[in-house]
Design a protein around this nucleic acid. Structure first.
Lengths: 368, 368
DNA sequence: GCCTACGATTGGATCGATCAAACGAAAGAA
DNA sequence: TTCTTTCGTTTGATCGATCCAATCGTAGGC
């Protein structure tokens, strides 16, 4: 005698299979007395429905697939951790499970979709790292497969449901804060144009400057990483003062005369003030970049938090540990919302417009 | 006409279901010509066996469960990331999949095991964060369920297969390196006694000192975190010099006269040398602690890397970003080995002794 | 030339659930 | 009373694979 089945429960409760099944799936059609009797039997035997058998008839596995990227992308580790935990916890609440898989690139990922649907019968997918002209979303849309993305369909219409964090709002928050602090020359350190979230974050900074009447600010585009941030800071600081246009990657211009650091920031003696015209604050597209910026500042004798301000993005543990101010994304909320949206689709709730949710990040102020 | 099934392939290849099944599961019993014909049909129709149906007869799901902890434990984020990726990738190679679940505590985790086995039919589990008197392993052993742990059965016999990293070897590596560098007063900053891996790491440091004839070194036990490291360093530095025994948590003693920092380390002018009797090097049980130590050192004008040396543990991105030397664990190897061992068990390969694998970490030297 | 042995292939039963339809009994309508 | 409706419950078929026993055809032994 192995695990209890519908039949053994039925026998124990002196009813038929189907009645037990009904107690589980549509209790309202069963009379209250029978319902209780069956529930008691289920409890007593410790019965749990076999999902494989259920899947055979319903063609639903209650499994959500998630492709796990090959990590190693620097500081951004924990973001995925939190995301996974919240995703799994929320899925469980709705009686779904998360299954992981890997793929070397987008094309391999679509092949994995096909495979998992055919073999495991996965119900839907959660995608991360959406980008311009995303092969994966197109593939899934063509086949009308259920999915939600963490990340907007950059450069395209809202053809599918998504959940995202308003990066522009985040950098705007950061920039506004710096302006309130008295900074007038606020630089942006980001990635090369073309990455959706990168452009978004830059836009928020630019909008904040424009709204404050500070014109275009200096900015630098580099690849992500501490060294990137370092060289960006170097170029932004060097480009200031002389009127020459900066190197190819440094896209900003000198602008009007710069003022000192924020009035709210305590200015301890001994630091070297930034040279005139140089930015006094840096809004960065990532914590890695921000870290590089602070390092370069320190090397030049400019003290972050005193002589200049730096704000990162993602609020990674590294930022928290180093006292780096950063824009924090509500990752757990994003994950929960992804599951919720996917569940709605799986239940057949198909609104005219695909559901879209944009969360607003918040600013975590620390010493920089 | 939905997805291709065994029957549709059989029809296309003009053979019976069972022959197609044989081509997939035991190709050797099928004649070469038939085999090829069937393979061509499978290819042409894009057939993939339905795991749910298979599971019904075989009672094997090919699914491995992993409980994902509620993250947020500071800097150690990426460790889990890498672990997950490698686990998933290796599992895929063996035609297994990883399913996630959550649990608030060990007791809830065992309930989740029962649930997942009964409903999903999970084949086995990978456990992380083993500790003394682990409820989970006992529960699984009692029921003879297949599992492997990342982490030794601390304080118990090898009653189950495990994979782990030799933490003692790691701290020993670190300590030996510091000794070669000329340090004679090498402190250990770790956690309160009782945590398996913490005690292990401390043991490696102690053994290295003993082997070098340096006697017992000073040490401090604090809870993990940057602040912990900071206060530990403070106490270790303060306790030195005066002959009084340190506060409750500071367990070391002064020992013989200390020498300067390592000969291999460039000593730039301007730093304040540690006071006599104070440790010149710190081996830490985690990167968080190490970070706290470097912060405290800097606050006291002692420059890590020049006036003193600090080595962390885990080689987190934070360490890499900050130039913190650290002991790196081969996480990907650990995960792969977990899957391999679990697979062996699932295939019925049950050796007299449970399989155990201990990986040796390596030292990543940076500026501290 | 007949019978056995063996390799290759086949058909029926089965895993545990749900679907669809049938069923019996009690209640309401003719 | 008899027919219809409704409700609660049961029965048979089915999802797609594998297990098991049976079958087929052919080659080898006597």
């Amino acid at each position: 005698m192995g695990r209890p089945t519908l039949n053994s429960v039925a026998e124990a409760a002196a009813v038929s299979r189907q009645t037990v099944s009904n107690v589980i799936n549509s209790p309202e059609v069963v009379s209250p007395e029978t319902r209780e009797r069956v529930r008691a039997a289920i409890e007593k035997l410790g019965y749990r429905p076999n999902t494989a058998a259920r899947q055979m008839r319903t063609t639903r596995s209650q499994i959500i697939g998630l492709c796990i990227p090959p990590s190693g992308n620097g500081v951004s580790g924990v973001v995925l951790d939190q995301f996974l935990h919240s995703l799994t916890a929320t899925a469980e609440r709705y009686d779904h499970r998360i299954m992981l898989f890997t793929a070397a690139d987008d094309e391999a990922e679509t092949r994995a979709y096909a495979d998992l649907i055919a073999s495991v019968g996965i119900d839907g997918f959660v995608l991360t790292n959406t980008h311009h002209d995303d092969l994966r979303t197109r593939w899934l849309l063509e086949r009308e497969l259920p999915f939600v993305t963490f990340g907007r369909p950059w450069g395209a219409e809202d053809t599918h449901p998504w959940v995202d964090v308003d990066g522009a709002a985040g950098t705007r928050l950061a920039t506004d804060h710096l302006i309130r602090q008295g900074h007038r020359k606020i630089a942006f350190v980001g990635w090369p144009e073309g990455s959706g979230s990168g452009d978004d974050r830059r836009a928020g900074w630019a909008a904040a400057l424009a709204a404050a009447g500070l014109g275009e600010g200096p900015r630098a585009a580099v690849f992500d990483g501490v060294e990137g941030g370092r060289s960006a800071a170097a170029r932004l600081l060097d480009a200031a003062g002389d009127g020459s246009s900066a190197a190819a990657h440094v896209l900003g211009e000198a602008g009007p005369s710069a003022v000192g650091p924020g009035t709210g920031e305590p200015i301890a003696g001994g630091g070297r003030a930034p040279r005139p015209g140089a930015p006094t604050a840096f809004v960065c597209a990532s914590d890695s970049l921000a870290l590089g910026v602070t390092a370069e500042l320190r090397d030049r004798g400019i003290r972050p938090g005193a002589d200049a301000s730096v704000i990162g993005f993602d609020d990674t543990p590294t930022a928290s540990v180093l006292g780096l101010s950063s824009v924090a994304q509500p990752i757990a909320d994003v994950a929960a919302e992804c599951v919720r949206q996917l569940r709605a689709i799986l239940r057949g709730e198909t609104p005219a417009e695909p559901a879209t949710t944009l969360f607003t990040p918040h600013l975590v102020l620390r010493t920089t």
